[in-house]
């Protein structure tokens, strides 16, 4: 294993999160397709997203989307701003900090129903199965 620094990790996380998001997209295509079979099939189908284990997987999705988006901006800045390469390491830490900052509140809303709390959206809160 090559002992790369932050740049190598930023790329590796970008790859892994990118593949993760792509995988979710495939699932999402399936769940949206259920709408073609009528509202009951769809409603029953997406109940799966209320399962405790799926909520935990959703956390991985949120983290992936946030990191991939922020690091994508970092790469754009490196590509287009001639001085961008000088700040690549600082920008990596900014990407991680931003991702965490965005993750915490979103994770709260996703995970709270597992503990029987439904902040903000009581009607979407299926009980923990």
């Amino acid at each position: 294993m090559y002992r790369g620094q932050s740049g190598m990790w930023s790329w590796l996380f970008h790859r892994i999160t990118g593949l993760g998001v792509l995988f979710f997209l495939l699932i999402h295509i399936v769940d949206i397709t259920l709408a073609g079979f009528g509202p009951t099939v769809y409603d029953d189908g997406i109940k799966i997203f209320s399962l405790g284990i799926v909520r935990v997987l959703s956390l991985a999705l949120i983290a992936s989307v946030l990191y991939h988006a922020c690091n994508g901006l970092r790469i754009l800045i490196i590509d287009f701003w001639p001085a961008g390469h000088k700040y690549q390491r600082q920008m990596f830490f900014a990407v991680v900090a931003l991702s965490i900052a965005g993750f915490i509140p979103m994770a709260f809303f996703v995970v709270a129903p597992i503990f029987g709390r439904c902040p903000g959206a009581p009607n979407t809160c299926a009980p923990f199965i």
């Binding site: 790369g4 620094q5 740049g7 190598m8 790469i75 690549q88």
Partner: peptide, 9 residues
């Protein structure tokens, strides 16, 4: 090139 920066280091 995926801007990994291993080369620069």
């Amino acid at each position: 090139c995926r801007t990994i920066f291993n080369c620069t280091e």
